[in-house]
Each structure stands twice: as C-alpha cells, then as structure tokens.
Amino acid sequence: MHNLLTGSDLLIIMLSGFFMILFAGAYTLLYGLGKITKKSKYIKISYIFAIAQFTAALMMITPDFLDPFWKYIIMFSACAYLFIPQGMWWVVHTSHTYWERQENNKDV
C-alpha cells in the first residue's frame, strides 16, 4: 500500500471522510428542522448537504490509495446516508404520533 501513497492523498481521504459525515449530519439536522418547523426552505437546503455528502464520498475514493473493497463500502454508505435522515424521521415521527395518541386516549 505504501508505494502508492503520497501525503496529499492521505490528507484528501481524511478530510473528505471528515466532511462526508459532517455533511451527512448537516443534512440530517436541516432535514429534521425543515420537517419540524414545516419550512420547505430548510429541506431544500438540506438536499444541498446531501449532495455535498455524496461528493465528499466521491472525493474519498478518487485517490488510488484505498483498496477497491473500502471504496465500495464508502459508496454504499454514501448512498445509504441519502435516505437515512428520511427513514429515521419517519420512524421517530410515526412512533411519536402513535404513542402520543394512545397516551391522550388514556387521559380521556
């Protein structure tokens, strides 16, 4: 592995890995905010971060340095992160509304 490596490749990979998860977080945050405040503006901005997240993943696999297998894993994660905020939101929202309704019925 070492003969392919240049210091700048390593920096690119580490920084893109950092930004990949960071943007995934920003996407999650803004998507959640948009949903909860019902402001589609946030959701639109959140998609920019979704794309940024994906781009960072692409940056991560551009240098030759990583083995193909890790590149697949990274791209798979990048695809998964595109849908995780929506999926998680749906889980949280559905369960909250369901149980809060149950709870309120109990009160009545």
């Binding site: 977080g25 945050l29 959640g32 905010l33 909860i36 894993i73 905020p85 939101w89 949280v92 909250h96």
Partner: peptide
C-alpha cells in the same frame, strides 16, 4: 474493525433526528 466501526456513526445520526423532533414537538 474497519467495517463495523464505519457503521458506528449510524446511531449518532439517529440521535440527532430524535433530538430535533423532541425540541420541535
């Protein structure tokens, strides 16, 4: 180690969604 730890951020992303939901709700 590489595979499973690469998945470790998942629960943490989930927690963010939950925090926002609770805050907003």
């Amino acid at each position: 180690g590489g595979f499973f730890s690469a998945l470790e951020p998942l629960p943490l992303v989930a927690m963010i969604i939950h925090a926002i939901y609770d805050a907003g709700a």
